[in-house]
Design a binder for these strands. Sequence first.
DNA 1: CAGTATCCTGTAGGATACTG
DNA 2: CAGTATCCTACAGGATACTG
Lengths: 110, 110
Amino acid sequence: MEKSQKIIKQSDENCPVRKSLALLGGKWTLLILFQINDRVLRYGELKRCIPDISEKMLIQELNSLVENKLVSKKAYPEIPPRVEYCLTELGLKTLPIADKLASFGLQNLK
Amino acid sequence: MEKSQKIIKQSDENCPVRKSLALLGGKWTLLILFQINDRVLRYGELKRCIPDISEKMLIQELNSLVENKLVSKKAYPEIPPRVEYCLTELGLKTLPIADKLASFGLQNLK
DNA sequence: CAGTATCCTGTAGGATACTG
DNA sequence: CAGTATCCTACAGGATACTG
């Protein structure tokens, strides 16, 4: 494996780690992406997957994820409403990060 | 590759992603770990590596990283003082996460 | 050099109630 | 069902000055 250090010279605003963290660093962001994973989930299902999140935070995160092209949203013009969320191509690329986070937690944290 | 989904049933407090995020989710945490990497760095060197961080945040993060056994600290009884930081075994295990973050940023973010 | 000590602020995040 | 709309607050994070 190549030395990570070679990737980056200075931790300025252009640092890829900081840019990724700016996009993904929220308390819930990676967890939501990880929960959606390769599935297509309705709002309510997602909420049930992450019981501790407030409605406000969930919808707020989803909106910004959609805005940032990590998640795509499909609303059906039905009553009662149905809205489905899934990861975009870009969103799928974040899964390896969440996976590393998960395996780190599993292996090292009680 | 195995389905990530199998790892976890629910996103409760025991969710490994959330536990990892609780430990590593700060604005600077993973960046500091990534900067130290496999090196042994003095406080001042580290500060120069991450120019934007405030002294308070840097020392605060370092202290909590030491407390959480991710970083080890060696202070030499000299004048002027010399203090060296490097990653512990556990800290080294977080590098793959930072690496994924870095490569995601490099490949996908402008 | 490697930190402390203060003071300050924005905003991430939450609780609750309401709606098309 | 899938959201809005309000109101609220703790604390992450920062600026600045000082010290052993």
